[in-house]
Protein backbone atom coordinates (compact mmCIF):
# COMPACT_ATOMS: atom_id res chain seq x y z
CA UNK A 1 0.00 0.00 0.00
CA UNK A 2 1.28 3.43 -0.95
CA UNK A 3 2.17 5.76 1.91
CA UNK A 4 0.44 8.62 0.10
CA UNK A 5 -3.13 8.63 -1.17
CA UNK A 6 -4.72 11.63 -2.93
CA UNK A 7 -8.31 11.24 -4.03
CA UNK A 8 -12.01 11.82 -3.36
CA UNK A 9 -12.65 8.76 -1.20
CA UNK A 10 -13.22 8.79 2.55
CA UNK A 11 -10.82 6.79 4.70
CA UNK A 12 -10.89 4.72 7.89
CA UNK A 13 -8.62 6.53 10.33
CA UNK A 14 -8.74 3.62 12.80
CA UNK A 15 -7.59 1.16 10.15
CA UNK A 16 -4.75 3.49 9.18
CA UNK A 17 -3.76 3.80 12.84
CA UNK A 18 -3.85 0.01 13.25
CA UNK A 19 -1.57 -0.44 10.23
CA UNK A 20 0.93 1.98 11.78
CA UNK A 21 0.68 0.21 15.16
CA UNK A 22 1.56 -3.07 13.44
CA UNK A 23 4.91 -1.69 12.24
CA UNK A 24 6.63 -2.74 15.42
CA UNK A 25 7.53 0.64 16.90
CA UNK A 26 6.69 1.93 20.34
CA UNK A 27 4.96 5.10 19.16
CA UNK A 28 2.25 6.11 16.71
CA UNK A 29 1.05 9.70 16.22
CA UNK A 30 -1.89 10.65 14.02
CA UNK A 31 -3.69 13.80 12.92
CA UNK A 32 -7.12 13.84 11.30
CA UNK A 33 -8.46 17.08 9.81
CA UNK A 34 -12.25 17.57 9.69
CA UNK A 35 -14.28 20.12 7.70
CA UNK A 36 -15.70 22.78 10.05
CA UNK A 37 -19.16 24.22 9.38
CA UNK A 38 -18.36 27.80 10.39
CA UNK A 39 -20.35 30.85 9.25
CA UNK A 40 -22.95 29.03 7.20
CA UNK A 41 -20.44 26.91 5.29
CA UNK A 42 -22.17 24.00 3.55
CA UNK A 43 -19.17 22.51 1.73
CA UNK A 44 -15.49 22.84 0.91
CA UNK A 45 -14.36 22.20 -2.65
CA UNK A 46 -10.78 20.92 -2.73
CA UNK A 47 -8.96 21.73 -5.95
CA UNK A 48 -5.50 20.36 -6.66
CA UNK A 49 -2.83 19.94 -9.35
CA UNK A 50 -3.27 16.29 -10.31
CA UNK A 51 0.03 15.88 -12.17
CA UNK A 52 2.00 17.28 -9.22
CA UNK A 53 0.15 16.61 -5.99
CA UNK A 54 1.17 13.05 -5.20
CA UNK A 55 4.82 13.53 -6.14
CA UNK A 56 5.00 16.73 -4.07
CA UNK A 57 3.43 15.08 -1.01
CA UNK A 58 5.87 12.19 -1.44
CA UNK A 59 8.74 14.70 -1.41
CA UNK A 60 7.39 16.12 1.87
CA UNK A 61 7.15 12.60 3.32
CA UNK A 62 10.75 11.94 2.21
CA UNK A 63 11.85 15.06 4.11
CA UNK A 64 10.15 13.79 7.26
CA UNK A 65 11.79 10.39 6.81
CA UNK A 66 15.19 12.03 6.37
CA UNK A 67 14.72 14.08 9.52
CA UNK A 68 13.20 11.61 11.98
CA UNK A 69 13.75 7.85 12.37
CA UNK A 70 10.34 6.65 11.14
CA UNK A 71 9.14 3.10 10.66
CA UNK A 72 6.17 4.19 8.57
CA UNK A 73 4.20 7.18 7.31
CA UNK A 74 0.63 7.45 5.98
CA UNK A 75 -0.73 10.59 4.35
CA UNK A 76 -4.25 10.74 2.90
CA UNK A 77 -5.59 14.00 1.45
CA UNK A 78 -9.05 14.13 -0.01
CA UNK A 79 -10.08 16.30 -2.97
CA UNK A 80 -13.43 17.33 -4.40
CA UNK A 81 -16.54 18.40 -2.48
CA UNK A 82 -16.50 17.80 1.28
CA UNK A 83 -19.28 18.72 3.70
CA UNK A 84 -18.95 19.79 7.37
CA UNK A 85 -17.95 16.86 9.54
CA UNK A 86 -16.17 15.07 6.68
CA UNK A 87 -12.61 13.88 7.14
CA UNK A 88 -10.32 15.88 4.85
CA UNK A 89 -6.78 14.83 5.73
CA UNK A 90 -4.97 12.12 7.68
CA UNK A 91 -1.33 12.06 8.74
CA UNK A 92 0.08 9.16 10.69
CA UNK A 93 3.64 8.33 11.70
CA UNK A 94 5.16 5.34 13.43
CA UNK A 95 8.51 5.36 15.20
CA UNK A 96 10.34 3.65 18.01
CA UNK A 97 9.92 6.74 20.22
CA UNK A 98 7.25 9.36 20.86
CA UNK A 99 9.26 12.48 20.04
CA UNK A 100 9.95 11.38 16.47
CA UNK A 101 6.35 10.27 15.96
CA UNK A 102 4.81 13.47 17.38
CA UNK A 103 7.22 15.94 15.77
CA UNK A 104 7.14 14.33 12.33
CA UNK A 105 3.32 14.23 12.41
CA UNK A 106 3.19 17.96 13.23
CA UNK A 107 5.81 18.74 10.56
CA UNK A 108 3.85 16.81 7.92
CA UNK A 109 0.55 18.59 8.52
CA UNK A 110 2.26 22.00 8.69
CA UNK A 111 4.01 21.32 5.38
CA UNK A 112 0.90 19.88 3.71
CA UNK A 113 -0.77 23.22 4.42
CA UNK A 114 2.00 25.32 2.93
CA UNK A 115 3.95 23.15 0.45
CA UNK A 116 1.42 20.98 -1.40
CA UNK A 117 -0.72 22.13 -4.36
CA UNK A 118 -4.21 22.10 -2.84
CA UNK A 119 -6.70 24.97 -2.82
CA UNK A 120 -9.87 25.19 -0.73
CA UNK A 121 -13.02 26.97 -1.89
CA UNK A 122 -15.76 27.60 0.66
CA UNK A 123 -19.39 27.23 -0.40
CA UNK A 124 -22.04 28.93 1.75
CA UNK A 125 -25.75 28.41 2.26
CA UNK A 126 -26.59 31.69 0.47
CA UNK A 127 -24.94 30.38 -2.72
CA UNK A 128 -21.79 32.47 -2.40
CA UNK A 129 -18.30 31.00 -2.70
CA UNK A 130 -14.90 32.15 -1.49
CA UNK A 131 -11.37 30.86 -2.10
CA UNK A 132 -9.60 30.40 1.23
CA UNK A 133 -6.57 32.66 1.56
CA UNK A 134 -3.26 31.31 2.77
CA UNK A 135 -2.64 32.30 6.38
CA UNK A 136 0.58 33.99 7.37
CA UNK A 137 0.52 31.95 10.60
CA UNK A 138 0.54 28.70 8.59
CA UNK A 139 3.55 29.81 6.54
CA UNK A 140 5.30 30.83 9.76
CA UNK A 141 4.61 27.44 11.35
CA UNK A 142 6.02 25.65 8.29
CA UNK A 143 9.06 27.93 8.17
CA UNK A 144 9.73 27.36 11.86
CA UNK A 145 10.65 23.74 11.07
CA UNK A 146 13.46 25.05 8.85
CA UNK A 147 14.68 27.32 11.65
CA UNK A 148 14.77 24.34 14.02
CA UNK A 149 16.72 22.33 11.45
CA UNK A 150 19.37 25.02 11.05
CA UNK A 151 19.71 25.55 14.80
CA UNK A 152 20.46 21.88 15.25
CA UNK A 153 17.35 20.93 17.22
Amino acid sequence: MSAVVIGPDDFDAAAQCAALEAMGGGAVATFTGIVRGDNGLIALQLDHYPAMTKAQVERIVAQAQARWPLLGVRVIHRVGRLEPGARIVFVGTASRHRTAALESCAFLIDWLKSHAPFWKQEHFADGSTRWVEARVEDDARAAAWNDQATSGN
Partner: peptide, 23 residues
Protein backbone atom coordinates in the same frame (compact mmCIF):
# COMPACT_ATOMS: atom_id res chain seq x y z
CA UNK B 1 7.46 25.03 -7.15
CA UNK B 2 9.65 27.89 -8.37
CA UNK B 3 10.12 31.60 -7.66
CA UNK B 4 8.61 33.99 -10.23
CA UNK B 5 12.06 35.16 -11.42
CA UNK B 6 12.96 31.60 -12.53
CA UNK B 7 13.80 31.26 -16.27
CA UNK B 8 11.41 29.04 -18.23
CA UNK B 9 14.37 27.31 -19.85
CA UNK B 10 13.38 24.00 -21.41
CA UNK B 11 10.34 23.47 -19.18
CA UNK B 12 7.23 22.11 -20.89
CA UNK B 13 4.61 22.96 -18.29
CA UNK B 14 4.04 26.11 -16.22
CA UNK B 15 1.30 26.21 -13.59
CA UNK B 16 0.05 29.51 -12.13
CA UNK B 17 -2.03 29.60 -8.95
CA UNK B 18 -2.61 31.37 -5.63
CA UNK B 19 -0.71 30.42 -2.47
CA UNK B 20 -1.73 26.88 -1.51
CA UNK B 21 -4.34 26.18 1.18
CA UNK B 22 -4.44 22.43 1.76
CA UNK B 23 -4.28 20.42 4.94
Amino acid sequence: FVALDTPIGNARELALFPPVTGG
